[in-house]
Design a protein around this nucleic acid. Structure first.
Lengths: 226, 226
DNA sequence: GCAATGCTTCGACTACCATCGAAGTATGAA
DNA sequence: TTCATACTTCGATGGTAGTCGAAGCATTGC
């Protein structure tokens, strides 16, 4: 009768509109302070503080203190993947918090999924990497091939440092707008960081959208041909 | 600020303990009546009825009338996949509704995930199918190879009838106990049905656990060597 | 030292929602 | 027709959780 993991706990954490807004804001990848999250959710600081401690207790968020600020962020990749999955379902049912606005196409084109690239561009990138045999698929797991290792080193990403961490280097993440997979994991994160460091792409403030520059578009298309 | 799909709606539906219990019960794959679901959740029929209409309105459940009974079941494969995903996260945080009991090992070994096989056996089956090149992995999608088509036809599963439906034939589903993928989709469903029809395996009543017979164990190992 | 900022804790209020009893509807059996 | 079963709808209740004002800590800056 009562068997298996308790999904109600997680559900109730996500189920409150204020908390859901904060989580969605944190899917933008930036670590945010309680004050910022409060305005995102449209509530006072006191209320936000209460919500944040619940989310932390539930294992969805972690915080770090820095001076007199507290920065909250999603606890692990897993949290982002789960949220993106739920968003996918909600989107398939047409459950949007507002009518698709002008921001919507930008989000579908390219956006941040916690710490990696999502949307049309994210999906195209993974497809291209697989087509060029730089990433290999085995079951649900992705693995970097030898050719892939050489490739990312050439881009300036150190394979050794990726491998050091306990996190998976490559993993799939279901894209809610494309309803297909894009690349997550430490490599996904490193690639997005690369795009931004090189000035190819910029994060919009207060949005998950990512805007590519003209030269960035070109560089991206050259790197990941369709 | 407010962008993207509304996860709070889904979260709140899953977040109520009574509803979570009903959903977990329906993960057993059987269509259940309000009366049965009410006892699973430990509530009265009136309350259950109210919950069920909410879950239906939210797109998580569908119902069909049959005589004076109403049978509820998960609306689509997607719902089961999402719930299994959330269970995976909850399990990784040690959020279990009871201390691991005697049922637990049985669940981890083999269980129903809505309509297909999950647990150790489910994962082994998919691994074996991939190792023997009967299923091919492309991105996050699985595809049946020519060899795979011949193979399932030999087992008595009609490839043509699988293909007719709009559902994907093969898809991955993240296993909460194994934390790896097993086979979902219409083929996953057909295979579980096959095991039960052949008398190799039996569903336990009032549990998601699946018990293999001795001859079933042997047949399974022959079909899907490690 | 004092003031300002950022955040948490406490306490009280309120609104919502799960819950169940009672009554109403539908299907089936006798 | 009458009774029984299966379920829904209505109405009332009660508990819980989200909300914010006010006060309390902590850190920084002057």
């Amino acid at each position: 009768m009562k068997e298996g993991p308790d999904i109600a706990l997680i559900g109730s954490l996500i189920g409150d509109p204020a908390r859901a807004n904060m989580l969605t804001a944190l899917m933008g990848g930036r670590a945010l302070t309680p004050t910022e999250l409060a305005t995102h959710a449209g509530i006072t600081l006191q209320t936000a503080s209460s919500h944040l401690s619940k989310l932390e207790a539930g294992g969805l968020l972690t915080q770090r203190k820095q001076g007199r600020h507290r920065y909250y962020q999603l606890a692990e990749d897993e949290v982002g993947l789960m949220l993106e999955n739920i968003m996918g379902f909600a989107a398939s049912r047409g459950m949007n918090r507002h009518r698709p606005g002008p921001k919507d196409p930008a989000l579908r084109k390219a956006r941040v999924c916690y710490n990696h690239l999502a949307g049309d561009y994210g999906v195209r990138m993974l497809d291209s990497l697989i087509a060029e045999k730089q990433i290999e698929v085995a079951g649900d797991d992705l693995a970097l091939t030898d050719a892939g290792q050489i490739r990312i080193e050439a881009l300036g990403i150190s394979y050794a440092s990726l491998k050091k961490s306990r996190r998976p280097i490559c993993r799939t993440c279901l894209d809610w707008s494309e309803r297909r997979s894009h690349l997550a994991g430490s490599l996904g994160e490193a690639l997005l960081t690369l795009f931004i460091d090189k000035g190819w792409a910029k994060r919009e403030t207060n949005s998950r959208a990512i805007r590519f520059t003209d030269s960035g578009e070109k560089a991206f298309s050259d790197l990941f041909p369709q």
